[in-house]
C-alpha cells in the first residue's frame, strides 16, 4: 500500500516537476538560441535575434 502510494506520488508530482524543471532550461535555450532550428519561432514571439 505504501509502495503504491509512493509510486503514485512519483508519477503525479515528482516526474512532472522534473519535466517542468528540465523544460525551463530548454525554454531558455530555445528563446535565446544557445548553440537555426528555432530562429523563426524566436522572431515570432518577440525575442531578440539576428
Amino acid at each position: 500500500m505504501e509502495k503504491a502510494l509512493d509510486r503514485d506520488v512519483l508519477w503525479s508530482m515528482v516526474v512532472p516537476a522534473l519535466v517542468v524543471f528540465a523544460l525551463a532550461f530548454a525554454l531558455v535555450v530555445v528563446a535565446y538560441g544557445f548553440d537555426d532550428a528555432f530562429h523563426d519561432f524566436r522572431h515570432m514571439i518577440g525575442m531578440p535575434c539576428h
Binding site: P16, V20, L23, L27
Partner: peptide
Amino acid sequence: AIFGVVATG
C-alpha cells in the same frame, strides 16, 4: 509545447 509546459508548472 515547451513554453506551455513551463508556464503550466
